[in-house]
Each structure stands twice: as C-alpha cells, then as structure tokens.
Amino acid sequence: MNRVEDKVVVVTGGARGMGASHVKRLIAEGAKVVVTDILEEDGKKLESEIGKNILFIKHDVSNASDWENVIEKAEAKFGPINVLVNNAGIDIPEINLEEYPEETYRKVIDVNQVSVFLGMKHVVPSMKKAGGGSIVNISSLAGIVGVNKKVAYTASKFAVRGMTKAAALELGEYGIRVNSVHPGFIRTPMTEALINDELVNMFPLKKAGEPEEVTNLVLYLASDESSYSTGSEFVIDGGLGAQ
C-alpha cells in the first residue's frame, strides 16, 4: 500500500477498461488522480464511485487547448503533477493498405500519437515545479512488431515508443523519467470481440491478459521503485512477441 502516496497523477482515457483499472489502483495506493476521457458519463460515474482523491475532466486528447485546461485544473485541485499516464487510444478494424482512407489514418495518428506529444509537452512545466516526475506512455505490442492490415495503429504505436526515448533523453536532467508500456491482447471493451480460443492458444501463456496485470506495471513505473528506469519499453504480452 501507499506506493504512490500523495503523488498527483493524470490518467487519460481513464473512464473505463484498462484506464479505469489504473485509476482505481493508483488511488488505492495513495495517489490523487485526475481522470480524463471523452466518455463523460463513464468518467463521472467512476468519479462518483470512488468519491475521494479523484477529479474527472472531459478531454479530447488530440486538442492542445484541452490539455492546457487539464493541467490548469489538476494543479488547482491537487497541486503540481508528478505522474502522467498517456493511456488514451483508439483502434479500428483491419483495412487493406490500398483501401485505407486518409482521414481514418490521420484520426488514429491524432488520438494515439499526437495526444502523447501534447501530453508530454504540456505536463513538463508542472513536473518541473514538482521537482521531477514519471511519464508512462501506453504503446502496444504493435509498437514492437508490425500488425497486418493495421498500418495506422502500428505506425502510431511505433511512434510512441520512439517519442518516449527522445523525451527521456531530453528530460532526464530535470528528474523526469519517460517509459513506454507495450501490452499484447488485454481483455478490455475495445478488444473483447477479438479474443477467442484460437487466438489465445497462440500465446505461450495460453491466456489473454487482464487490465490489472498491466496496471501492476503502470504502478511500478509511476512509483519511485522505478527511479532508475527511463527511455525503456516494458512489454507485457503473454510471450506473444517472443515467437
């Protein structure tokens, strides 16, 4: 318990699924958490359920003005930010490259990649005030290996991995650590329809991951336990990428 006691944490895409798992555990471990999402109803419901040390803000992660609003309100409520978990992301069904609509490609890049750039950019001044911090960028196994017929998703997740390393090099002198997390198939509302026995049998561990298993890794990176880790990728995929 209390592994992130009194740390101020922002979790994007935190209203449900994997993000909500992160939020609940971080608060249970002593953090004050700002939850952001476009899913206002889900976010307010989560805020009501937890009741303490939580603030929900409706947030389009691809919008710079929205990021400014989140940082301002987070600091006003809890103080300078210690941890940012860039969790928000989208995926779409498989599309052949030659048929891939440009507007769809750009939408995936905006939500999955540009949002991470904006989050890191806008949180740095607050983390400097806090005397340092930890940025946890949620990428994917698709940021380590290519995924067939998912060119935009793969591009965005590889980019998050690279941006993480560049930011880590720049921000280390300020005591700000930046790492990426690369989940494989985790059972969430976004992936539930894709998980079946045939797919699961491909994994060395013969099971899909659960949000709480990713949360354990996020908590480690948010805490001071990971104080010498920066610019690294942490893969949690049941061994799928090892094949």
Results as ranks from 00 to 15, higher is better:
E5S: 12
V9L: 06
V9T: 14
V11G: 01
G14S: 02
R16D: 05
A20L: 10
L26Y: 07
L26R: 08
G30N: 07
K32F: 15
K32H: 15
I38R: 01
L39Y: 09
E41L: 09
D42W: 01
K44W: 01
S48A: 13
G51L: 14
G51E: 09
N53G: 04
S62P: 03
S62D: 06
N63S: 12
W67L: 05
E68A: 15
I71Y: 03
A74P: 05
A76L: 09
A76S: 14
I81W: 02
N82G: 05
V83E: 00
V83S: 00
L84F: 10
D91A: 13
P93C: 11
E102N: 10
E103R: 07
T104E: 14
K107W: 10
V111D: 03
N112V: 03
Q113F: 11
S115R: 06
L118H: 07
L118F: 02
L118C: 05
M120T: 12
K121Y: 11
S126Y: 01
M127A: 03
A130N: 05
G132I: 04
G132Y: 06
I135W: 03
N137Y: 00
S139C: 08
S139W: 12
S140H: 07
G143S: 12
I144R: 15
K149F: 09
A152C: 04
T154P: 10
T154L: 12
A155N: 12
S156V: 02
K157E: 09
A159K: 06
A159D: 06
M163N: 01
T164K: 02
A168I: 01
G175M: 07
I176H: 03
N179A: 00
S180Q: 04
V181K: 01
G184M: 11
G184F: 09
F185L: 13
L194A: 14
I195A: 10
N196D: 14
D197I: 00
L199Q: 10
V200W: 07
M202S: 11
M202L: 15
P204A: 12
L205T: 09
L205Q: 12
L205C: 02
E210P: 06
P211W: 04
E212I: 15
E212S: 12
E213W: 09
N216A: 13
N216F: 03
N216D: 14
L217P: 02
L217I: 15
L221F: 10
S229D: 08
G231N: 06
S232M: 12
E233M: 00
E233V: 08
D237Y: 10
G238W: 10
L240Y: 15
L240C: 05
A242Q: 14
